[in-house]
């Protein structure tokens, strides 16, 4: 009893006690539902009832049916492409803010970059449709100036449109971690590299980039994971060829009424995403440690 009393006053007990509501909430609304999704993915939907005998049939369908394979591959391709574009655009912007903006104005610039993110999510996607469309802003301007005769058709209702829209949506989330990483780069290290005879570009690749790599990896993961789960952007601007796996998951849960298959697809997608995220993290560790 004395031991328990003592434990109750200990740091560990106080900390656990304090965090228990938050943890309980997350267990109830995250862990339990995730476990149920896993369970569901091994069951079968029989019209309105659920057959709860264990089966891997859903996974077999999810992994062997060409349509799902194709959708999964396309989703991955689009997500990787979006991630690459986003990070490649984000890096110079973050670099500019960190290295070329006076310290007093940095906070303002960061604020400036996050503002468009607070436009209504659906509205933003829809407006891209307006910008990229047949009579949209880009085509209107280009034909208006006589640069092109026929409106460009390769920018709406296809994968390019999805990439542009998603990149736009996630770029603030990519800039922030890279910016933070660049801010942490000790400026005297870059001066040291210069002093030791490195040119501007060599200096960047040998000092600045490696030191900001954790930010790049964080940005990659932050962008990559949610883009796989987005079903709104492909639906609005993707056209039939721009649909992604999330659209299929949504379809299975809602209209097709095959929740177990949807669950199997969702779990598979999550597994693949996790795998890629782990690969990024592993690459980061390799990169930071350097070739040995």
């Amino acid at each position: 009893m004395v031991g328990f009393q003592k434990w109750r006053r200990s740091e560990s007990a106080q900390g656990l006690f304090l965090i228990s509501p938050t943890l309980g909430f997350a267990l109830l609304l995250l862990a339990v539902p995730l476990i149920m999704v896993v369970a569901l993915s091994f069951w079968t939907q029989d019209y309105l009832t659920l057959d709860r005998t264990f089966t891997t049939a859903n996974y077999q369908t999810a992994w062997t049916e060409p349509m799902y394979q194709y959708l999964m591959a396309r989703s991955l391709k689009i997500s990787i492409f979006v991630t690459a574009v986003t990070v490649l655009v984000a890096y110079p912007v973050a670099y500019f803010i960190s290295f070329h903006v006076v310290p007093k104005r940095k906070a303002m610039w960061i604020f400036l970059i996050t503002i468009p993110f607070w436009t209504s999510y659906l509205m933003r996607i829809f407006l891209w449709k307006v910008i990229l469309g047949y009579n949209g802003v880009i085509n209107g301007t280009l034909t208006g100036f006589g640069i092109i005769d026929e409106p460009l058709s390769f920018i709406l209702y296809n994968q390019n449109a999805v990439v542009i829209t998603l990149a736009h949506a996630w770029i603030p989330f990519a800039i922030l971690p890279i910016f933070v990483a660049l801010e942490r780069v000790d400026r005297s290290l870059i001066e040291a590299a210069e002093d030791l005879g490195d040119s501007g570009i060599r200096r960047f690749f040998r000092v600045t980039l490696p030191l900001s790599m954790p930010g790049v990896i964080a940005a990659t993961i932050i962008v990559f994971i949610p883009t796989i789960g987005d079903y709104v952007t492909p639906r609005l601007v993707g056209g039939p060829n721009g649909l992604m796996i999330s659209n299929m998951i949504e379809l299975q849960f809602k209209k097709a009424n095959n929740a177990p298959l949807g669950a199997a697809l969702a779990i598979s997608a999550m597994g693949i995403v996790t795998f890629f995220a782990l690969v990024f993290l592993w690459m980061n560790r390799k990169y930071v440690r350097g070739p040995s």
């Binding site: 943890l23 999704v37 994971i225 789960g229 987005d230 999330s246 949504e250 849960f253």
Partner: peptide, 22 residues
């Protein structure tokens, strides 16, 4: 674990909550 929803695709959260509620 508590921070996990930040990196989980939202569709997963939506789907899993839907499953539990149903």
């Amino acid at each position: 674990f508590v921070m996990l929803p930040m990196v989980l695709p939202e569709i997963i959260i939506g789907v899993s909550l839907l499953v539990v509620i149903i």
